[in-house]
Design a binder for these strands. Structure first.
Lengths: 143, 143
DNA sequence: TTGCGGCTTCCCATCATGGGAAGGTCAAGG
DNA sequence: CCTTGACCTTCCCATGATGGGAAGCCGCAA
């Protein structure tokens, strides 16, 4: 199986396969006499693992760790769970951040006429020298 | 006002100010005899505008557009709103995507013992050759 | 005058991905 | 046996926004 077939079979582009090999995420594939890479079914499975992990947002570094645990028959599931939970936290933090951005923008956009006139609360906000948006007094009562 | 003071006053690092100048997001600041950049209050205000826009997640390209509208006294607010709404959509799409990742991972993690034993549904999923996760039959009844 | 802190430019690194060039290889069909 | 087209190889470059750091110039204070 050469790189194109491995790419199709795994869903990882040939470019990325070479890259993963270069950064030592995967062990270098064998080579044919003519220097073509040759992939075994096992290696294709690793590529599928990587593609799936990437699609869940894991970084390459995290995937390196996950792969080593996957290969380790006596890994403690505690370690796997820790990586997953850590990543979930990262995701949640980003989601919260983006949600805040979107909420602010929706509020500004709601009050913008969106017609031919130049008046615009969005530009007014951006130009107002607003500090990085600290919560506008968190409405005592949520605690 | 030299670059350090402008940085403090605007909240944009000196590094970034030079970068914004280089990519022509802002007009090159004037120079003193000794080649130091010199910033006016007006330029500092532009930097604050940029910092605020960045904090709302706008790309530099979008900010270039927003800045030109800001400077244009007869802009149609429609254009500003379009940029903002477009960005909100981008944010929402990313949020949905990350939410899906987090949901999947939380479900997998929930079923993982997280102890010394090697059995782990997280690794099982990653190693299962799962295709990029199409919804597992969307449970008719939510419409 | 010395010394420290700030300024200048220039280069490098990040993270994961793609584009493209130049050249070698393989298989099918003439 | 040779051509052709599709594949493979390596190498370099670009992305977006940011920071780190080196080498060298400048300005102010003691």
């Amino acid at each position: 199986m050469n790189i194109g077939q491995a790419a199709k079979a795994s869903g990882v582009s040939a470019k990325m396969i070479r890259y993963y090999e270069q950064i030592k995420l995967i062990t270098p594939a064998g080579r044919t006499d003519s220097n073509y890479r040759s992939f075994s079914e096992r290696e294709v499975n690793e590529l599928r693992f990587i593609r799936r992990a990437r699609s869940l947002g894991f970084s390459v570094e995290e995937i390196a760790h996950l792969l080593s645990l996957w290969r380790d028959r006596v890994r403690p599931s505690r370690e796997v769970k820790a990586i997953a939970d850590g990543h979930v936290q990262t995701l949640e933090a980003k989601i919260v951040e983006m949600q805040a951005m979107a909420d602010t923008l929706r509020a500004l956009s709601r009050d913008c006429a969106g017609d031919e006139r130049p008046d615009c609360p969005i530009l007014a906000d951006l130009g107002s020298g607003q500090p990085p948006r600290r919560e506008p007094a968190p409405a005592r009562g949520f605690r």
